[in-house]
């Protein structure tokens, strides 16, 4: 039985994942906030199905990526939003400007990849091995290897331009 307190602790510990996924699949601060909120909501909704034998962060990547994708199809339904503006908008402001600029360029390169590739490169950058990427994405390990090779080539040529 999972408790609310355990959920809160886990979210606090892994909150960076939500930020990175939400930023990757959106193009504006407003959409980012919306997806961020949606991911936390979906995590809470799916929390009873989380099994202790798997790693929380692995489960969290899966829910976060799936939510970000499913959100791409939804029309914007604006209503009252939780006041997450401050922490989301200011989060990276606390990092120095030069770094933020470089991060923006990094995200811009990744965002130019296809929707299929985005998730795979994110997990690779997060330091996940082929087994973990395969478990989260549902692709085979061989397929992940092939795709990553292709993505790296694509990024290389993008960066050269």
């Amino acid at each position: 039985m999972h408790t609310k307190e355990e959920f809160i602790e886990q979210i606090k510990e892994n909150q960076g994942i939500i930020y990175k996924v939400a930023r990757l699949y959106t193009n504006s601060a407003e959409d980012q906030k919306d997806v961020y909120q949606e991911i936390v909501y979906q995590l809470w909704k799916s929390y009873p199905s989380f099994k202790e034998n798997s790693k929380f962060s692995t489960w969290m990547y899966r829910i976060a990526l799936n939510t970000a994708i499913s959100n791409l199809n939804k029309e914007k339904r604006k209503g009252t939003q939780v006041s997450i503006d401050n922490f989301l908008l200011n989060k990276m402001d606390q990092v120095d400007t030069v770094m933020e600029e470089r991060i923006t360029i990094l995200y811009a390169h990744i965002k130019r990849l296809s929707i299929v590739e985005k998730g795979i490169i994110l997990l690779h950058l997060e330091g996940k091995n082929y087994d973990e990427i395969a478990a989260i994405t549902g692709f085979t390990k061989t397929n992940i290897g092939t795709r990553l090779g292709r993505i790296k080539q694509k990024l290389k040529s993008q960066i050269k331009k």
Partner: peptide, 18 residues
């Protein structure tokens, strides 16, 4: 690392978000 260091989400905020 920077994002992880910035523990800005509070218990209350997480509950509000859900």
């Amino acid at each position: 690392q920077k994002v992880d260091q910035q523990k800005i989400l509070t218990d209350e905020l997480i509950l509000d978000l859900t």
